[in-house]
């Protein structure tokens, strides 16, 4: 048992270093004074000047604001649609169109982004020709496209949560005469709420981060943050982009840590309640 254990743990450590080294280097060099991103200017560093440059760059600030609005809308719509799809797939048994729905919900996850971007743009162009809507491309078409690929992720997350607990609670409520909508609201929804929240967060992140699909379906006037960043870094490294990484890494790590703590607390409370209930029964 010893040798594979040592070997795999060494690879795990190396793998984690590999995953975090680039992120760390972004953060470190965002405080570097030199324009040459990779040469540390010890005499004048650390400095916050790239952060100041970032905040005074109107193009980046506007793009960030647009990206936030799109991500909020797309994640919320995707959470609703994705949850509906998950409930239908896990709880409704066989129905007509089930195989189609199952296939359609997972396909966007693996579909290469260039194909989805192209397909969605051609759809919007064809729709505008046929019914005059949507008028041109822009924030609206980006949001519609983001909802479509984000809802797949929500479905997967909620689906695995729904499959993880059994139906007896819902069936009991049904037997006691609760209408399906009440069963969903009072029993199913509270149980899958954590999954919906993590699905929403995942959808928000994916929308906020999407470059390729947005590039296809964005009009000339609307640039999301990744589009602006991409056009900058295509020409090589630029230190103010490094400065963008630090707040994003910070936001994500605090968000994840908070979510983990909250989940652990809930889980503990739930376990205590189960124990109390068991004790009361005995």
């Amino acid at each position: 048992m010893r040798s594979p254990g040592y070997f795999s743990r060494a690879v795990l450590a190396a793998g984690l270093v590999f995953l975090y080294l680039p992120i760390l280097s972004l953060v470190v060099f965002s405080f570097n004074n030199s324009r040459l991103v990779t040469v540390w200017d010890a005499a004048h560093s650390p400095t916050l000047k790239w952060y100041a440059a970032l905040l005074s760059n109107g193009q980046i600030v506007d793009a960030a604001w647009l990206s936030i609005r799109i991500a909020l809308a797309a994640a919320s719509a995707a959470a609703v649609l994705g949850t509906l799809a998950a409930v239908a797939l896990v709880r409704h048994g066989p129905f007509r169109g089930r195989t189609l729905l199952a296939g359609l919900t997972t396909a966007p996850i693996v579909m290469p982004e260039v194909i989805m971007g192209l397909a969605l743009l051609l759809l919007f162009v064809a729709l505008e020709q046929a019914i005059g809507w949507p008028r041109g491309t822009g924030a609206l078409t980006i949001t519609l496209a983001h909802i479509t690929f984000c809802m797949a992720y929500v479905t997967v997350v909620v689906q695995s949560r729904l499959a993880g607990f059994d139906e007896s609670l819902e069936e009991a409520a049904m037997d006691l005469g609760a209408p399906p909508s009440a069963v969903f609201r009072r029993i199913t929804l509270p149980l899958i709420a954590p999954a919906i929240v993590s699905g929403w967060l995942l959808a928000f992140t994916l929308s906020w981060d999407d470059l390729v699909i947005s590039q296809f379906v964005a009009g000339p006037g609307s640039s999301t943050l990744p589009m602006v960043v991409f056009s900058k870094v295509r020409l090589g490294v630029s230190p103010d982009v490094n400065a963008l990484a630090t707040p994003m890494v910070l936001a994500v790590s605090t968000g994840i840590a908070a979510a983990a703590l909250l989940l652990r607390q809930r889980e503990r409370r739930r376990r205590r309640e189960v124990q109390l209930a068991a004790a009361a029964e005995a």
Partner: peptide, 22 residues
């Protein structure tokens, strides 16, 4: 598991960009 997942939650574009500097 969280350590493996965490980079996935931070910007893909910025993480790829970081490799240019490396």
């Amino acid at each position: 598991l969280m350590l493996v997942m965490l980079p996935f939650w931070t910007s893909f574009l910025l993480r790829v960009y970081a490799w240019i500097g490396l």
